[in-house]
């Protein structure tokens, strides 16, 4: 029996990548948000790795796609350019964690801000959120299967001799 190994592309911080069929998308997020948007009819999907909430709130603007309000609309447009239809698109979100406690000082964490900003943009762009695994205090690996739109999320295994989280 022939086993076909699917190719996997890593989506780094501020990347916005659209894929079809044989190429799955993969990332690791802490406070960042992995925004996975999918058109189930065309089997086109894309992922944006959002690092910060809104461009207007920050001095350092480069690259602009690190911001939710830039990356998410760009992702939707890229999927449309590949033949996807906005009315069919659904979004799945992962991330927004607060991994290190001393980074917040009791204020709203950057992960919470990222999550709120991402939801706000998706509502504005009229893309429905189908599922989400967000906030808390653990980083996540996110594997977006472009063939069926499934998003597989894993957490780190602590106190294991082999500490790598392997995806198929």
């Amino acid at each position: 029996m022939e086993v076909v190994q699917k190719r996997q592309v890593y989506v780094g911080i501020a990347d916005v990548i659209v894929s079809r069929n044989q190429v799955n998308l993969y990332t690791v997020v802490g406070s960042c948000i992995a925004v996975c948007i999918y058109d189930p009819v065309k089997h086109i999907g894309g992922m944006a790795h959002v690092m910060l909430p809104e461009m207007s709130l920050f001095k350092s603007k480069e690259p602009p796609t690190k911001f939710a309000d830039v990356a998410v609309p760009q992702l939707i447009t890229k999927i449309e350019n590949e033949g996807g239809l906005r009315v069919r698109m659904t979004a799945k979100l992962a991330g927004g964690a607060n991994v290190l406690k001393t980074l917040t000082n009791g204020e709203e964490s950057i992960g919470q801000k990222n999550f709120k900003a991402t939801v706000k943009v998706l509502v504005k762009e009229r893309v429905r959120i189908a599922d989400q695994d967000v906030l808390e205090d653990k980083a996540r690996t996110v594997l977006f299967n472009i063939e069926n739109g499934f998003v597989d999320i894993k957490f780190a295994q602590v106190n294991r001799s082999s500490n790598q989280c392997a995806h198929p």
Partner: peptide
């Protein structure tokens, strides 16, 4: 005082980079 996490390095670093706005 120190703070620690046992977690994916990519996730810990993006949390630090985003909070301190020191990415890139």
């Amino acid at each position: 005082p120190p703070d620690s996490a046992v977690d994916f390095l990519g996730g810990v670093l993006d949390n630090i980079a985003a909070t301190l706005d020191i990415n890139f």
